[in-house]
């Protein structure tokens, strides 16, 4: 295909993605409860864990500052994954709740463009929510997550990716099971918290559970985070594992989504998915 023919198609694809992004922008602009909800949980989490860290710091002399830093960094970074996952899943559910999916799926919007728009909305939601929590951490506990340095970008990117592939799997389950799978949008990644070694090293887990934890990118990210905070060491190996695992899991999630989307078209579920 010539460049001249290809360019307008790409522009149209970008415009379709923008169309769905605009739909969510308009939704949030006109709904203050939704805006509050974006920040509510990250701020609540940061408040609870921040005060807990302050309390422990007062009693654990010597390692107090480092422990509090580990705790707060863990809370903030785990929120990156949680908010990324919920952002995608809830944005998809918004289409179901508004009974709008029929119109969306008979438009020229490709499934990949739908996913791109959902990821865009999720990124914006996550930045607002986690940003508010990070500001609170700096204001209340004098904890600056940016002080971790450039390595933070790698932690951040890997946790966003993990949130996205978990969300794609959740959306696939919603396509398969309809409204009955909605609760997974809020609960799936919370369930992986113990295995993600957010607040403790993987070695704390029972031996038989450690390989399961190490199959998750998040466990490697948080091992890397501890290496950076405790030893000022850039654990490239952990980050490489996290990145590689994310690619594998993402490929699996894309395959699952494509399969369930096609299955929904075969079953006629795209019109009745909210029921």
């Amino acid at each position: 295909m010539s460049r001249a023919v290809r360019q307008p198609i790409n522009r149209a694809a970008l415009r379709r993605v923008w169309g769905l992004l605009y739909r969510h922008l308009a939704l949030y602009r006109g709904s203050w409860p939704r805006l509050v909800e974006l920040c509510y949980w990250p701020i609540l989490q940061m408040s609870i864990w921040g005060f807990t860290a302050s309390f422990l710091s007062a009693r654990m002399h010597g390692v107090a500052g480092v422990s509090a830093g580990l705790l707060l960094a863990g809370v903030l970074l785990w929120e990156v994954a949680l908010r990324s996952q919920m952002g995608v899943a809830v944005s998809f559910l918004e289409e179901i709740w508004s009974r709008n999916l029929g119109h969306v799926f008979v438009s020229p919007l490709r499934p990949a463009e739908l996913v791109a728009a959902l990821l865009g909305v999720a990124m914006a939601r996550m930045l607002i929510g986690v940003g508010a929590a990070a500001v609170l951490a700096w204001f209340l506990y004098a904890f600056n997550i940016l002080a971790m340095g450039p390595v933070l970008v790698f932690f951040f990117a890997n946790l966003v990716l993990m949130g996205w592939w978990v969300a794609l799997a959740v959306v696939s389950l919603i396509l398969r099971h309809g409204a009955g799978a909605e609760a997974l949008a809020w609960s799936v990644l919370f369930g992986l918290t113990p295995l993600s070694a957010v607040f403790y090293p993987v070695s704390v887990l029972p031996g038989w559970l450690q390989p399961v934890a190490l199959a998750l990118p998040s466990a490697h990210v948080f091992e890397g985070m501890r290496a950076a905070l405790l030893h000022h060491f850039f654990a490239w190996g952990e980050l490489a594992w996290a990145g590689g695992l994310n690619l594998v899991w993402m490929a699996g999630a894309i395959w699952l989504f494509a399969r369930q989307f096609q299955a929904a078209r075969v079953r006629g579920a795209l019109l009745s998915i909210g029921e």
Partner: peptide
């Protein structure tokens, strides 16, 4: 349905982009 919380103009804008 069309998204109930969006205005008429916003709804038409969404589909105009799509």
């Amino acid at each position: 349905a069309l998204p109930a919380r969006l205005t008429v103009a916003e709804n038409l804008r969404v589909y105009g982009h799509l």
